[in-house]
Design a protein around this nucleic acid. Structure first.
Lengths: 213, 213
DNA sequence: ATTATATTAGAACAACCGTTCTTTTATATC
DNA sequence: GATATAAAAGAACGGTTGTTCTAATATAAT
């Protein structure tokens, strides 16, 4: 009783297709012919089971009153993130300003769903130029989704600016007595130790998105 | 005659709200009470106008057969991709079946925007387990967005199954005379050469998503 | 085999709902 | 005002559609 029967799977799938095709839900008799079922009562019977299992919601006495419930309710909304520049070795990370903040004014925007941002604010995106971040498993052309913070927790991946080296890099940051340890994401590589005065946190990495094809 | 009348605007708005609230379109009489209209024929009259103007599509003789044509932002450009399993060295890549295809039946889904999928079909996602893909700049826990194809163009990143080695890996595929060259994404690493009979294309990589924080 | 439970069949009812027709009222154009 | 067009009102017809009832059949457990 835990899994859906073949028939129930077909019903869910059919409603899904029907809704996508026509824009309105099917009737009991639509499902009947669509799934090769021979009686409306059988459809009603299986719909009742599907509702009890939480796959859909029915509105009694209402024609086509079938509502498909998405697996993740409270459907996540979309967020427009401005791509405010590039990140490359030897260049400063462009810090977001009120101007560049404006999504409409940004040169390009990235559209992400909220299950990626998890409700975080102060987001911006950078396009990675060059191979200077390969030790963080970040390739040329990747897009890094960032949150503009100046303090990060231990072990978080962050964009740090090394003042004396004049170099921006993405590393995991660990604060240790008298020094800061920068750990590449690739665990096979050795960490770098720098003086606290030499580092400036530019933001923390929320996600990395690489579009291949 | 160019603009919509107050009543017509109300109808469009009401259908929109109704659809969002209940998941199925309203009846003529729903619109009647919802917009304070006093006769079904008035609703029919205005619906005919709205259809002629291209705001909606009606399906004759079909209850609730109203389809809003103005693409509701957030609905048309989002795609639910089923995360159908893991990919790891020494394990076969789970090929999508009609069962696992169904979004509602999938254990977990990834919601992406269409500017990432670019209208592609046959999409599924895999969660990367382990560090066997680091040479492709893919980390443990990354999510790989895949398209289910069996043939790829030269230079495309694909999930390939090496039969004799019993190993799944992500590489750029180049067909060369008498052999197939598998090029790691990290250009600093050396390519691998394998026999054509030994490889099986499982799908091409569309994007890689890494959630860090 | 027997019993209990799950599923299927068929039919019929009653309300739902799109359509259409005629009549009335409003709005514009001259 | 006269006329034409647009919009609304009201009612009725008929197919649609969810529901429900009874009976039959399948499946599983003991």
């Amino acid at each position: 009783m835990k899994v859906l029967s073949i028939k129930q799977q077909c019903i869910i799938d059919f409603i899904h297709r029907f809704l996508g095709d026509r824009g309105y839900p099917p009737t009991v008799r639509d499902i009947l012919s669509g799934c090769g079922i021979s009686s409306t009562s059988v459809v009603a019977y299986n719909l009742a089971i599907l509702e009890k299992k939480g796959y859909l919601s029915r509105h009694p006495e209402i024609s086509r009153g079938i509502e498909l419930l998405t697996r993740t309710p409270g459907s996540s909304s979309r967020v427009q993130v401005p791509i405010i520049g590039q990140i490359a070795a030897g260049e400063a990370i462009p810090v977001p300003t009120p101007d560049t903040w404006d999504v409409t004014a940004a040169a390009d925007t990235l559209e992400v769903t909220e299950d990626l941002t998890r409700g975080k604010g102060g987001l911006y995106a950078l396009k990675v130029k060059g191979l200077s971040m390969v030790d963080a498993l970040i390739n040329d052309g990747d897009i890094v989704l960032m949150q503009h913070v100046s303090v990060v927790e231990n072990g978080e991946m962050a964009a740090v600016w090394l003042k004396s080296e004049k170099e921006a890099t993405l590393k995991k940051v660990y604060v240790e007595p008298g020094r800061i340890r920068l750990q590449p994401a690739n665990s096979q590589m050795q960490p770098i130790y720098v003086e606290p005065d030499n580092v400036e946190i530019q933001g923390r990495v929320i996600a990395v998105i690489r579009q291949v094809a």
